[in-house]
Design a protein around this nucleic acid. Structure first.
Lengths: 157, 157
DNA sequence: GTTTGTGCAAATTTTTTGCATTACA
DNA sequence: TGTAATGCAAAAAATTTGCACAAAC
């Protein structure tokens, strides 16, 4: 599936969701979805706002927050809180479940996947009689040779 | 080790840290440490502020933020970000490493421990050539019978 | 006696809300 | 055309900063 195909499919999901819940299908909402899926990276609301403004969209922060809320509800995006007081988001349609490794030197975010997390999740749900709906595993640390290769550009020390 | 003994030990750690780093040992700093260790639960800065004010401490938010920064640096407390724009903290001296299960209905936080997380952590560190310093695994969901028993008091639906 | 740390209030940063206007249905 | 959604700006919430005074060292 190409990125354009993914965007078309995601828009279909969004259309369905909006219809089902009696929300209007505004241009702004689809523009936000499209730009998020074109970004193809983690983003915060302010940077998305600046990004869309730079592409001459007429959009407000209020609409971004509003639309992001809707996109979260229909699972087209995911929200992350990586230990800072700033929420980060990322597209999640047709993107496999994954967790994050956050470099505390260069702020780069790496993704990984491990089936054992699902096992822990369902086991803990059973033991504690809890319906686990989602999980988030964050590994914080420092990239080793990645910073030598120039990936970790903003290394502190 | 009783709680009082833990507090005494934690204060010793803090004293050491402050001396070593040329910071002054002020009454405020030790009061904050003590109140946090007496709380014995997750807390945010504002609630700690209100709590200490109610105990007639003369303390400011600025000092709380400042002291919390120091306590984080010497690992006497841990910071959590459970998907909200509000940092939660908890005492961490003489308290075993654990992860969190967050009920999205009643906001209760349960703790658990699973050795497989350490395995994932070191394996991913090796694969991605990353020095993992810490991890955070959050399981989000809804408590089942706990809410029937009245533990989950603020259940939404 | 210096100088760091404190309280207070003002400033920042991130997110939410109120309201007049726009545009979807 | 009626009403939900928008843009804008102001408010709220969480955290940080500046400055005069207090208290460690």
């Amino acid at each position: 599936m190409t990125n354009q195909e993914t965007i078309v499919a995601a828009k279909k999901v969004f259309t369905n969701y909006l219809e089902k819940h009696g929300h209007r299908r505004t241009n702004e909402r689809f523009s936000v979805l499209e730009e998020i899926y074109l970004l193809n990276d983690h983003f915060d609301v302010e940077s998305l706002f600046v990004h869309m403004k730079s592409k001459s969209y007429r959009i407000s922060r209020a609409t971004l927050y509003n639309t992001i809320e809707l996109l979260l509800e229909c699972d087209l995006i995911t929200r992350h809180q990586f230990g800072k007081n700033l929420a980060l988001f990322e597209r999640s349609y047709a993107y496999k479940q994954h967790d994050h490794l956050i470099c505390q030197d260069c702020e780069h975010i790496f993704e990984f996947c491990d089936p054992r997390i699902q096992q822990i999740q369902s086991m803990m749900g059973d033991i504690l009689r809890f319906d686990v709906a989602a999980h988030a595993l964050h590994l914080f640390g420092h990239c080793r040779e990645l910073k030598d290769k120039g990936v970790c550009k903003h290394h502190k020390g």
